[in-house]
């Protein structure tokens, strides 16, 4: 079993740890509300600093800064067109696939300190470290096994038994093993929508990413399948950092530890989820949460 390996990274030396911890303290100091009182914030996994993003001349993300806590679930909420999905897709440089797009600012990935959107960073390497699950299940036209093995093969794994072990671990982590263990060679399209989405989660987990992005992962699923995915998302945070975009505020409330509310490309409020939902600091947030617009 390689489950233990999921979400772990190379161990830095002691002096580096000290420097990084200082950096973390400094990063959270920008968010005094989050760190105040009895709440001890976890280390920061990814630090979004003054990020802006343009589609051509249209600015979709405006000078956004958010800390993404390590091995916690952070939710991005906001009305349609507020830029939350655009922001999410900056994390794995998905926008690079399209012409005429432009990033500005930084997304620093800890502990390596890599700036994700730096031009010198290879987006393909970044995507192996940061997985993604999409709005609709999008399994490849391959067998269940090959769907999960796809990323491993991209990452250069060759050994048959090693790949098989890792595929099994990922499918187990996605709570799908019991349903598919006897038909791994069957086409992924034979699965139900909810199973396909969990397969896509397994596919994203197989390469042992440090972080997984979820882009409204339950918008195409029925309530029962949705509940399973939500449960799964919460269990994932033991091993990976999760960033989830959702339209559904109840979902954000159920699954996330931190919530960022976005509106018209700007980040309006970021805080612990219970704070955002019970006692929002901004009027706009309160109006959105209570369903007065959006």
């Amino acid at each position: 079993m390689v489950t233990a390996g999921l979400g772990t990274m190379d161990r830095p030396g002691a002096e580096q740890v000290e420097v990084r911890e200082a950096a973390l303290r400094e990063a959270w100091s920008a968010w005094p509300g989050v760190a105040s009182g009895r709440h001890v914030p976890p280390p920061i996994k990814a630090d979004v600093r003054s990020l802006s993003f343009w589609y051509g001349k249209v600015q979709a993300v405006k000078n956004v800064s958010i800390p993404i806590a390590d091995r916690r679930v952070t939710a991005l909420i906001g009305p349609s067109g507020c830029g939350k999905t655009t922001l999410l897709r900056c994390f794995n440089r998905m926008h690079d696939l399209y012409r005429n797009t432009r990033y500005e600012g930084q997304i620093v990935l800890h502990p390596s300190g890599t700036d994700i959107i730096d031009r010198g960073v290879n987006p393909i390497e970044m995507r192996m470290r940061i997985g993604m699950v999409f709005q609709k299940p999008n399994p490849f036209p391959k067998s269940i096994f090959e769907n999960v093995a796809f990323g491993l093969r991209m990452k250069g794994f060759r050994g048959r038994s090693e790949i098989a072990d890792r595929v099994e671990a990922a499918i187990r982590a996605a709570a799908l093993w019991d349903e598919v263990s006897d038909r791994l060679r069957k086409p992924a399209y034979d699965l139900s929508g909810g199973q396909q989405q969990r397969l896509c989660i397994a596919r994203a987990l197989a390469t042992e990413p440090e972080m997984v992005l979820f882009d409204e992962p339950t918008s195409a699923l029925d309530p029962v399948a949705t509940a399973r995915i939500e449960e799964l998302v919460q269990s994932l945070k033991e091993r990976v950092t999760v960033l989830i975009v959702t339209h559904n505020m109840q979902q954000a409330g159920r699954v996330s530890d931190f919530t960022a509310f976005m509106y018209l490309g700007e980040m309006v409020e970021f805080d612990r989820t219970e704070k955002v939902f019970q006692n929002p600091g901004k009027q706009l947030t309160e109006q959105y949460i209570s369903g007065r617009f959006g």
Binding site: M94, L97, M128, M132, N138, M154, C200, A204
Partner: peptide, 11 residues
Amino acid sequence: LLREGSFAVGG
């Protein structure tokens, strides 16, 4: 969406 799925795992 299918292409993005492939790119998202490092294809």
